[in-house]
């Protein structure tokens, strides 16, 4: 296990944000965490990252966990290269070439300030900055948020490829459950601070409750827009078939 969360409880003052959440991610595994807005997904990630102290429960990690935060959270007025370099604060190996190999466009905009980039480019920088931290587990918070479907697809493919090629485990936190269930083998459903469901993505996809709540039993606008982008991947991606990068 690269990450083992047991009976985690987090409180903000009187309010309980997480109520006895247990979750694990194995080595080289890709796991999804889905759930509605305000379910506590980001709180869970921030607690795993050590930014929030839990009231009780335990978090055991075997290896470095690095987070790609919701909304990118770049150093806006610093250059792309500085952003990437600062990602290596913990590890002190500041060689950027593998990031530029992974995201060739970033190499051309290395001198540009992060805030001048498009949303998709910023997300690339955010992922690249996290990779600079040499993670054994990459925790991605809302990869798809605010991005165009094609951009999301491209980024998702990169994450999947990283997982396949380097064996880096991924915990993907997503409101876009369709995307998450497509590319991850296993998933947890978090609702109001508690785990509502957990299991293989394929099973969850068949569950009527998940279909109704997250897979467009009543298709929301956002879902409808994203559907074409992710549907081609549904065929091959989800169940571990060959994903063409």
């Amino acid at each position: 296990m690269i990450l083992e969360v047991r009976e985690l409880v987090v409180r903000y003052g009187q309010a309980t944000a997480l109520d006895g959440v247990s979750l694990e991610v194995g080595e080289g595994e890709m796991v999804a965490l889905v759930g509605p807005n305000g379910a506590g997904k980001t709180t869970l990630l921030n607690t795993i990252s050590g930014l929030i102290r839990p009231a009780s429960g335990s978090i055991r990690t075997a290896g470095r966990v690095v987070q790609v935060p919701e909304g990118r959270q770049l150093f806006g007025d610093m250059t792309v290269e500085d952003n990437l370099r600062l990602g290596a604060w913990r590890v002190r190996d500041r060689n950027l070439s593998h990031i530029y190999e992974l995201f060739p466009p970033l190499s051309e905009m290395r001198r540009r300030r992060a805030y001048t980039l498009s949303g998709g480019e910023q997300q690339m920088v955010a992922v690249g900055r996290a990779l600079m931290g040499g993670p054994q587990l990459l925790a991605v918070d809302e990869l798809s948020l605010g991005l165009a479907p094609l951009v999301v697809q491209n980024l998702a493919e990169h994450v999947v490829r990283l997982n396949r090629e380097s064996g880096m485990a991924v915990l993907l936190v997503e409101q876009n459950a369709r995307l998450a269930l497509d590319i991850c083998a296993r998933a947890y459903v978090l609702e109001a601070g508690r785990l509502a469901m957990a299991g293989q993505s394929a099973e969850l996809r068949r569950s009527p409750a998940v279909q109704a709540a997250y897979l467009g039993g009543a298709v929301g606008e956002g879902e409808a827009v994203r559907a074409p982008a992710t549907s081609p991947r549904t065929a091959g991606g989800g169940e571990g078939g060959g994903t063409a990068p």
């Binding site: 930014l51 935060p69 959270q73 150093f75 806006g76 610093m78 600062l86 913990r90």
Partner: peptide, 14 residues
């Protein structure tokens, strides 16, 4: 400079 630019992100990168 990063601490000034985005304290939250600075904390995240350690």
């Amino acid at each position: 400079t990063a601490c000034y630019s985005n304290p939250h992100a600075a904390r995240l990168v350690g």
